[in-house]
Simulated assay, not measured.
Amino acid sequence: MNNSAALEKRKTIENPLKRKKGFEYYIKRDFLLYLMLCIPVAYIVLFKYAPMYGIQIAFKDYNIFQGAGKSPWNDFATFKQIFSSLQFYQVVRNTLVLNGLDLIVGFPAPILLALLINELIWTKFKKVSQTILYLPHFLSWVIIGGIVAQLLSPTGMINSLITHMGGEPLPFLTNKYAWVATYAFIGVWQNAGWGTILYLAAMTGIDRQLYEAADVDGSGRLGKIWYVTLPGIRPTIVILLILQLGNIMAINFDRPFNVQNNLVMDFGDVISTYVYRVGIQSANFSVGAAVGLFQSVICLIFLLTSNFISRKLGDNGIW
């Protein structure tokens, strides 16, 4: 027994894979990787977690001179104020409508573009098309807002062309229903190309033997798309859908702010612009923080619910 125990100990010493390696070993081995990891971790801590200290002003009568810590608690008076405001419910409705429209129109667009580009045979044309499609993603919404005003305003280029041809100007930016459609179209134009990259990357991971088997079975292009390509990118579609559902109440400030105008505020005023106008311009910081906290909680509920439903249906969720 002693000889066998000594032999086993000797094997453990001789085999470095069986040795228990401590924290210092991995730090020394992957020093540069841990050093690079410090940058994103520091960003998240400084700009994501540290500002959460200010959430408390949503529950206080915030005074800028007293600070967040010394301002008096207000017994949820801020939340009672926003929940009794009709304008708050209007901006929540507008946020849900615009994000829901983006989900219905904007979510399938990159999938369709990726399928079309993937079917192109001419490689050079495929690369040029992909580059042209995702270039709008790098334009700021300030620039896009200026382009939209120049093209779609009542005196813009498109309406001037329509008038020159004998037609009536179209109210792209002045009628609230037409503005909603314009808003959705601009979002697809700006984001669809960038989303296409994710799906094209997922398509490269599909086993080519599946396409060869589909050829043997006599499947055409549509058959291979339906039975091979779409099931191959299904996990990517599910994850991105869960993330978008989780952001159903979160809306970017730049896009509605730069596209809206006073004529369409019934549909154009959303949570982000409401927080900016009430919380910052009117210096009512408690209301702005309360609305932002409400928005984050609803987004978290949607994210958890969509992830739970996805896992129950047999798909892989985010976790």
Rank of each mutant, 00 (worst) to 15 (best):
22 G>P: 01
54 G>F: 11
30 D>L: 14
29 R>P: 05
39 I>V: 14
46 L>S: 15
43 Y>G: 04
33 L>E: 01
44 I>W: 12
47 F>L: 09
41 V>L: 14
32 L>D: 14
40 P>G: 03
42 A>E: 02
34 Y>Q: 02
36 M>E: 03
46 L>R: 11
38 C>P: 04
50 A>T: 11
52 M>K: 13
38 C>E: 00
30 D>K: 15
36 M>L: 15
29 R>G: 09
40 P>A: 05
47 F>Y: 13
26 Y>W: 14
38 C>F: 02
42 A>Q: 09
25 Y>N: 08
41 V>S: 00
24 E>C: 02
52 M>H: 09
20 K>D: 12
38 C>H: 02
39 I>G: 04
33 L>A: 06
33 L>Q: 06
20 K>P: 10
21 K>G: 05
46 L>F: 13
42 A>H: 04
38 C>I: 06
22 G>D: 06
24 E>A: 10
43 Y>P: 05
47 F>V: 12
32 L>S: 15
36 M>A: 13
44 I>D: 09
30 D>C: 15
26 Y>T: 11
23 F>S: 04
49 Y>H: 09
41 V>A: 03
46 L>N: 08
51 P>M: 07
37 L>S: 09
25 Y>W: 09
34 Y>I: 01
33 L>N: 10
44 I>R: 08
34 Y>S: 00
50 A>H: 13
42 A>D: 06
49 Y>F: 13
25 Y>C: 06
28 K>F: 02
44 I>G: 09
45 V>F: 15
42 A>P: 00
26 Y>I: 09
37 L>A: 12
43 Y>A: 09
24 E>D: 04
47 F>S: 12
52 M>T: 14
48 K>Q: 08
29 R>A: 11
35 L>D: 09
31 F>I: 07
31 F>P: 05
23 F>K: 07
21 K>I: 05
26 Y>V: 08
29 R>F: 07
24 E>R: 01
33 L>W: 09
21 K>Y: 14
34 Y>M: 07
45 V>T: 05
51 P>W: 08
49 Y>A: 05
38 C>R: 03
36 M>S: 02
22 G>F: 03
48 K>C: 00
35 L>I: 12
41 V>E: 02
52 M>C: 09
48 K>F: 07
46 L>V: 11
34 Y>F: 04
22 G>R: 02
42 A>I: 10
40 P>E: 04
42 A>L: 14
43 Y>F: 10
25 Y>V: 04
37 L>Q: 07
27 I>M: 11
22 G>V: 01
28 K>H: 10
25 Y>D: 08
31 F>C: 01
53 Y>G: 02
